[in-house]
Design a protein around this nucleic acid. Structure first.
Lengths: 254, 254
DNA sequence: CAGTGGTCTAGACCACGTT
DNA sequence: ACGTGGTCTAGACCACTGC
């Protein structure tokens, strides 16, 4: 047999991938350890390079392993941040109770915000829809990047109508104490209600580069809209999150 | 040149993938349309089979396209459900306001719940932690599957302490009018607060089969814990969602 | 510089869906 | 029967990492 899959069992690359996965689960390889490389697998299983490669790619696309060019394939580490969707924007806070997934609570982690840019620009169509703006109205776009332990984990762009924020500190890189929402309140547009919408998909090539994502890591797309008491949408914040770096949490009453 | 990447530009497979992606974005290929196959790309771009294949695999891993064995590679359709995390469990409801991503509001969609099983079993460790149960206490496990238009989109397993629910309708497949939470209320353990925790990652092989996921589709892992007024956790619901089928939405006050 | 993963070629057989 | 994607082989050159 030169090639082709012969009998009714599982594929060769799956057999190899399963063996490696089992070894990881069994603790034979721990997070950060180097897995057998392409050459090792070719020798051990008597397969061609591409087959060994595909086996390793299975583990990568499952998010279990991560290839580093010129170095090897390594077992991935999962140390997510916990992002509390509601408490971070509200005051009321009920007691704790055990959490399901253990996670670092933003303590002892080196989080840096960088790459802040603020521009006035034309309003993208889908943003105009949500903010209820006409075609010719412009918006203030505030972009930021969150970097955790040297790796970017979140990209954020916030859109606010120029008709609301013009002349305020919101159009400055430093929006002042209390941030954008405090300034909105001073302008008579205090956010009273929020809506967060969440999707998840594989990243585009650009997103993967910007967030330096390992292959096999999806992203969260989060879009938060802030409404005033009167029901007007005054801010839309579009975010892209490294899904491997976050646990999203929402606490609410019945 | 027999092989190898020559100059400083983008890879061949990326060039092809980018061209196809642009054509999709431009509307030349619409959702459900068949894309050029491996043979077409080999001829059009003068590349080897594996290179054409890798170009198509880029689109699949981005979730843009989907391969059907023996038929071709097709542009994916994205028609997600909207799951309102808070309103579905609370009464208060403020007005609408435009939503960012258009989505079907659970209307006009054929949603079926099947595969209901209810068992009494030993408590998995991580569930015991959250429910605050000792090792020998047992739980009632209620599993369900949601099927949308013939495709499974959500797997759910709910755990409740036997010491709380024994003898009630909760241990029956049909938990009665108002469901599990109504029964818990009757038992004096009315849920007053909820916590939902969300992660996203690529599916395991098993999850991909159970949800019949196309390659390149991540899953949401959602864990909801229900607390009584006194702060006791009385239910933990672990869910696996097809991320391509859902938009998660949380509305809350400042 | 030796070894690693990343890309690429030019063939092959197979299971599957459509015709 | 034919074309499709899925798997597999046995080679190759390249860029990068780590010693």
């Amino acid at each position: 047999m030169t090639a082709g899959q012969s009998e009714g069992g599982e594929r060769k690359y799956q057999r190899i991938a399963n063996a490696l996965r089992a070894a990881i689960d069994a603790g034979e390889y721990r997070p950060g350890d180097r897995l057998p490389g392409e050459n090792d697998l070719m020798a051990a299983y008597q397969v061609a390079r591409m087959t060994a490669r595909q086996a390793l790619s299975v583990l990568q696309s499952e998010g279990l392993a991560e290839a580093r060019k010129g170095a090897g394939v390594f077992v991935r580490t999962f140390r997510p941040l916990r992002r509390r969707g509601i408490q971070r924007l509200a005051q009321g806070q009920w007691g704790t109770g055990r959490s399901v997934w253990s996670a670092d609570l933003d303590e002892d982690r080196d989080i840096v915000v960088d790459g802040i840019t603020v521009t006035e620009q034309d309003t993208p169509d889908h943003i105009a829809d949500v903010l209820g703006l006409s075609e010719d109205e412009r918006v203030c776009a505030r972009s930021r990047r969150f970097v955790l332990d040297g790796k970017p984990v979140l990209l954020s762009t916030s859109y606010l109508p120029m008709s609301v924020v013009d002349g305020s500190a919101i159009t400055q890189e430093d929006s002042g104490p209390g941030g954008v929402y405090a300034r909105l309140a001073e302008l008579g547009h205090a956010p009273a209600r929020f809506r967060e919408e969440i999707r998840s998909r594989m990243p585009t090539t650009t997103e993967a580069e910007d967030l330096r994502l390992a292959t096999g890591t999806p992203v969260f797309l989060m879009c938060r809209t802030a409404f005033t008491e009167g029901g007007r949408a005054v801010e839309v914040n579009e975010m892209v999150l490294d899904a491997g770096s976050y646990i999203l949490e929402y606490d609410f009453n019945a």
